[in-house]
Design a protein around this nucleic acid. Structure first.
Length: 592
RNA sequence: GUGGGCGUAGCUCAGUUGGAUAGAGCAUCGGAUUUCUAAUCCGAGGGUCGGGGGUUCGAAUCCCUCCGCCCAUGCCA
């Protein structure tokens, strides 16, 4: 018997083929195969109902015709896949225990899952635009989302066969440098002598500089001229700028290391400063851009909001009236670079919800521009998310109303986790407890960010995310640790082949086995919308199925065949949980 | 005003082209532990899916309308 990584695709394919032989069904038939409620089977095909409705035929009769054709075709072995028609026209498919078992045998290790998933995005070159931090400012709680969601999505795309390029598009050429340089020069500060937290010092200098500009507006002119001379290549200002960027880079690298974020390229706005003239030229030459109020803008008349006769004009402004570029300009230059240099077939942007209009305009403009110039148009995708809220349902702040620094957040997560770990497992060495606490704390923080639908705001709650109950990282990590414990005690390598197992028997075994086979669907859902919470939900259900199994059926029993079978289930659960956690950017633990 | 998101159990959230009796976790209540990590498991109660109307075999999901919350609304990113 042959089983595929995702049996529902196989069923879908067979249904489409078979449908061609049914007179009342045309080639536009979509079987609509999906996982079913366990009461009805493993998979169900709902497409018959919708199709019958559109064609004005009786759905039950259509279902019967399709089912008969299916049974006659011999394409699905009825001993392995039981097919039934029920209700108004649902087609239900239940896999045999033998089929399930075969699936478990053929999908043993992480590489088998990867091999199954790799067809989903095989060889596709995808640039991921993240985490796109700003220079000269300390990271705060808001920056955790691009790092965590971006990393998870990048790992998922990697796993599914894409050739990913993680491009950190930093804001290192903005107007804030004028103010910062003005303030640094005014105070005669030597950046090399700033000690402990240089980025915090820069942050404060900028704030002080801005405040000063408020008091003495004439200083704004000075800041502007510092910026102009920086942009004209003045050696002194360039040296200062390099120091500032360097300080920022170091600070962010430290955060990336703690959060497991990997960056392939850091090509910020400064990198594109000599590439913007081409943007102005090409967009003007193709007739897309025109002057408006002294600025160079692109209108999109087919979209009401961006059309020139909208009651509130909202064009895509690509050059300010003072002649300077802005983020629209650099984003256009950037996408061109990614297509020309990286051969990007797809670009995924990760930002918060507030930038939706910008990306809609960017995508519209890029499509028209590339079409006019005959450049390959990449698929463009804006992955956006909501706000992290505090208990008061307002953006999460400290008690005194200040923005929470990202480093402080990470430290608190580890501290809180350490207290919990120490309470639960005091006999471990302190160093190991510290290490476990780091994994649990950071993992809990990440999981909280990933487990709810990203397009919604979510309420931040320390106690909930660090709880060992519910849909949390500790619950998943604990499930893995318990499995590890079994293998440690028996001295068996969880990755080694397990021989002599007898087929599945108990209800808990079968439920767990079915849940294990749900991985392909979870991956596809996650990939389709680039929403990691689908994977989280699946992993939580899997860990739950494992825990139920663990409580119901003892693994280390005398009968060697039963023991082997249950060990195999443990090994598979472990592999899937570990694989899933790693895709989310969470490090599994040997014990906790 | 326009556009986007949202409103589902006391709380936090799921809910895959419209599908079968709307789910989970927490909290509450009742059980299970000479245990392979009980940091767990099993069970119970809890809902006019914001209100109203419509489309149809079928609506949390689609359409209309109203109410409420968050966000965006040309030269910051």
């Amino acid at each position: 018997m042959q089983v595929s990584f995702n049996p529902s695709l196989e069923i879908d394919r067979v249904l489409r083929e078979t449908a061609l032989s049914v007179p009342s069904i045309g080639p536009d038939f979509d079987p609509g195969v999906r996982p079913a409620d366990p009461r009805f089977g493993d998979f169900q095909a709902n497409g018959v109902l919708g199709y019958a409705k559109r064609k004005g035929i009786n759905p039950r009769e259509l279902g019967e015709a399709l089912l008969h054709a299916l049974q006659a075709s011999d394409k699905l072995d009825p001993k392995q896949i039981e097919m039934t028609l029920s209700g108004p026209g649902f087609l239900n498919f239940r896999l045999s225990g033998e089929f399930l078992w075969q699936w478990l045998l053929e999908h043993a290790g992480k590489e088998d899952f990867r091999a199954g998933a790799t067809s989903l995005r095989k060889g596709r070159t995808i640039v991921i635009d993240y985490p796109s931090a700003n220079t000269a400012k300390q990271a705060h709680i808001g920056h955790i989302r691009p790092m965590v969601i971006g990393e998870a999505i990048a790992r998922l795309l990697d796993f599914c066969g894409a050739k990913t390029i993680r491009d950190n598009h930093i804001g290192d050429w903005g107007t804030n440098f004028g103010t910062l340089i003005m303030k640094i020069k005014r105070d005669g500060i030597n950046l090399e002598q700033i000690s402990e937290n240089p980025l915090a010092a820069l942050d404060n200098l900028y704030k002080a500089g801005s405040a000063l500009e408020q008091e003495q507006p004439e200083l704004r002119e000075q800041s502007r001229s510092e910026l102009v001379s920086l942009q004209n290549g003045d050696p002194e200002n360039t040296a200062l700028w390099e120091q500032i960027v360097d300080i920022s880079t170091r600070a962010f690298d430290a955060l990336f290391a703690q959060l497991g974020v990997r960056v392939d390229h850091t090509l910020g706005e400064s990198f594109y400063r000599d590439k913007v003239d081409r943007i102005y030229d090409e967009l003007t030459e193709t007739g897309l851009a025109e002057e408006s109020d002294g600025a160079l803008v692109v209108w999109h008349d087919e979209v009401k909001k961006f059309s020139r006769d909208n009651e509130r004009p909202y064009p895509f402004n690509i050059r300010k009236k003072d002649g300077a570029s802005n983020y629209a300009t650099t984003d256009l230059a950037t996408i061109l670079y990614r297509v020309e240099e990286f051969k990007a077939e797809e670009v995924v942007y990760l930002t918060d919800a507030r930038q939706q209009d910008h990306f809609e305009q960017l995508f519209l403009t890029t499509k028209k521009w590339f079409a006019a110039k005959n450049y390959p148009v990449p698929q463009m995708n804006h992955v956006w998310w909501g706000t992290i809220l505090g208990p008061d349902k307002k953006p999460f702040k400290t008690k005194s109303g200040e923005t929470i620094k990202l480093q402080a957040l990470l430290d608190e997560a580890c501290q809180r986790a350490y207290i919990v770990v120490t309470a639960k497992n005091p006999e471990l060495e302190e160093e190991e407890r510290r290490q476990i606490a780091r994994t649990v704390g950071i993992g809990a923080l990440k999981y909280a960010d990933l487990s709810s639908n990203r397009t919604q705001d979510y309420v931040f709650d320390w106690d909930r995310m660090l709880s060992f109950e519910g849909n949390t990282a500790p619950y998943l990590l604990y499930a893995v640790a318990r499995i590890n414990s079994i293998f440690r005690k028996t001295g068996i390598d969880p990755d080694a082949a397990i021989e002599g197992a007898s087929p599945l028997e108990t209800e808990a075994e079968q439920t767990l086995a079915r849940k294990l086979m749900g991985l392909p669907n979870a991956l596809e859902l996650t990939l389709h919308d680039l929403r990691p919470h689908f994977l989280c939900t699946y992993l939580h259900e899997l860990a739950g199925a494992y825990s139920s199994f663990y409580n119901a059926d003892k693994v280390m029993v005398e009968e060697t065949d039963v023991r082997a079978r249950r060990l195999l289930l443990c090994a598979r659960a472990r592999t899937v949980l570990i694989t899933g956690l790693e895709l989310l950017g969470i490090d599994p633990l040997e014990r906790m």
